[in-house]
């Protein structure tokens, strides 16, 4: 679902398509019991990035200048259009992502993925293990972020500078943070695999799940709506060409 949605977001070009997508997001958010406003609040932190994109794109894209004079001559009509689209895409993506993460725990998400990929097992793809890996990856993001922050501070208090010099020097100055972070991640992975083994983990063989996923009516509706949406958008974007 999410992937399809993502593709659609990038596919859409006209404002009408965007409107349709927005409407869809709105409805899904409502059905999932998450007020739309809630999802919007989640994207507040990236507004800065959105504005930045807007600004850069406005200047960078070549085309018809808005005006002949002053700074305005660098801003082009195409630039603005393109950047507005970009920002709308960004916002749609994030709202979609925020709906996804607020309705589904990562583990449930992975179970879903594993279920979708089940046919791949015939090709000897270790689907279950892959899903497990991804779920654990998600679980450790906050831990690693915290650790990264701590290491960063520790190196700063040893006199490390991260803001001066040319790009190469700046990249080099990340080494004191990245090396320990990776070393820590490996150590953690090692400990974790030991702990999992100690708790009788042996891959998917003989493993059951406390919560099994069921395909409910809501899911059917959702999938149907998604398919319909895809079809409509597809027509709008390609038929007009």
């Amino acid at each position: 679902m999410a992937t399809v949605f993502m593709t659609l977001v990038f596919l859409a070009d006209s404002y009408l398509s965007f409107l349709l997508l927005l409407f869809f997001t709105f409805v899904v958010a409502g059905r999932a019991g998450r007020p739309f406003g809630h999802s919007l609040r989640g994207i507040r932190p990236i507004l800065f990035i959105a504005l930045f994109t807007l600004a850069v794109n406005s200047f960078a894209v070549k085309g018809t200048p808005l005006s002949e004079y002053g700074i305005l001559c660098h801003i082009t009509r195409e630039g603005i259009e393109q950047s507005v689209r970009m920002v709308i895409r960004l916002l749609l993506l994030l709202t979609g992502a925020s709906i996804l993460t607020s309705t589904t725990t990562p583990l449930a998400l992975m179970d879903g993925l594993a279920a979708l990929m089940r046919p791949l097992r015939r090709l000897r793809v270790p689907v279950h293990e892959l899903a497990m890996m991804m779920a654990i990856g998600l679980r450790f993001i906050p831990v690693l972020l915290e650790e990264g922050g701590r290491i960063f501070k520790a190196q700063v208090s040893r006199g490390a500078g991260f803001t001066s010099g040319n790009p190469l020097q700046r990249a080099r100055s990340c080494i004191p943070v990245l090396v320990p972070l990776f070393a820590g991640a490996f150590r953690r992975a090692d400990d974790l695999s030991t702990a999992m083994e100690a708790r009788c983990f042996r891959g998917s063989a003989g493993r059951t799940r406390m919560k099994t996923l069921e395909f409910s009516r809501a899911d059917v509706i959702c999938v149907t709506a998604m398919l319909a949406l895809s079809a409509v958008l597809f027509c709008m974007e390609f038929v007009k060409m």
């Binding site: 650790e147 701590r150 501070k153 190196q155 208090s157 040893r158 004191p176 090396v179 070393a183």
Partner: peptide
């Protein structure tokens, strides 16, 4: 600031995790 950090040495918790 950099001078201050050299005059006040701060050893973090589990400092061995910062070796690189």
């Amino acid at each position: 600031m950099r001078d201050l950090r050299r005059r006040v040495g701060l050893v973090f918790q589990h400092p061995e995790n910062q070796l690189f």
